[in-house]
């Protein structure tokens, strides 16, 4: 197939649109997972046995089951679950995008929560003790003392999760979402040029992760100021 012919450009444009959907899905999934995961992580620091039992079950299931299965489960069974929750008289449409965002959120919230636990363990106990000695309330303490330090401690792990979510996003195309990979597959099938389109699609992911790695290195340097050791 002629490079940069009209047909080729058309498929390329379709892939660009797909990339936009992929990015939307990724951004929504990661943000929601981050927020929900942080909340879950903080709540499950409690020693209450019920909270611990629920958390252990949730974490064990999520970490033992492929995310693809959870995407399928939510996509196929999503409307039945919603009618079960909000009454059977109404019917619900589950879009692949909605199922994908929900699945990514549920799965990666568990990983983020685990990360929060690790970061809190690494935080010196004195930080909590100093807060209570200074009579800083729990909300203010978390907001102004603990969370800012957790951000620094959790950043490397968070970058890791960012990469994994990015590489899990294309799985939602298997539930019928017209994202970058789905469009690349259509283009490859129609033009019989699988190498061009699939390598273009993977370059998108590689370039995107390379850019964010640079950004995260800068962030790490910024959060670490005042703490970083001089390199010999």
């Amino acid at each position: 197939m002629e490079l940069f012919s009209d047909q080729f450009n058309g498929y390329l444009w379709q892939m660009v649109q797909g990339a936009y959907i992929t990015l939307q899905l990724f951004a929504a999934g990661f943000t929601l997972a981050l927020v929900l995961g942080t909340l879950i992580g903080i709540v499950t620091l409690s020693r209450n046995w019920l909270i611990q039992a629920v958390w252990k079950t949730y974490a064990s299931i999520i970490m033992g089951v492929p995310s693809l299965l959870i995407i399928f489960l939510l996509y196929y069974g999503g409307s039945a679950m919603l009618s079960g929750l909000f009454g059977t008289d109404r019917s619900f449409d589950v879009t692949p995008f909605g199922a994908g965002v929900t699945a990514l959120t549920i799965v990666y919230a568990a990983y983020v929560a685990e990360l929060v636990h690790g970061a809190v363990m690494n935080l010196p106990k004195g930080q909590f003790e100093a807060c209570s000695a200074l009579a800083i309330g729990p909300v203010a303490a978390w907001r102004h003392v603990i969370l800012p330090q957790l951000t620094r401690l959790a950043l490397p792990g968070l970058v890791n999760i960012w990469m994994i979510v990015l590489k899990d996003t294309p799985l939602v195309s298997l539930a019928g979402l017209n994202d970058l990979v789905a469009n690349a597959k259509i283009a490859a099938g129609a033009t019989k040029e699988p190498f061009i389109f699939f390598i273009a699609a993977s370059l998108f992911f590689i370039v995107f992760s390379a850019l964010t790695l640079r950004l995260s290195a800068r962030l790490e340097a910024r959060f670490g100021r005042g703490l970083a050791e001089v390199k010999a």
Binding site: L166, K167, D168, T169, P170, L171, S173, L174, V181, A184, K185, A188, G189, K192, E193, P194, F195, F198, I199, A201, S202, F205, I206, S209, A210
Partner: peptide
């Protein structure tokens, strides 16, 4: 490492399965 780590598994499988057949 950069290529095969950075590309999602789904695309790699498509690449091997559909690509080599061509």
């Amino acid at each position: 490492v950069v290529f095969f780590r950075g590309a999602p598994l789904l695309i790699l499988l498509y690449l091997v399965y559909y690509g080599f057949g061509q």
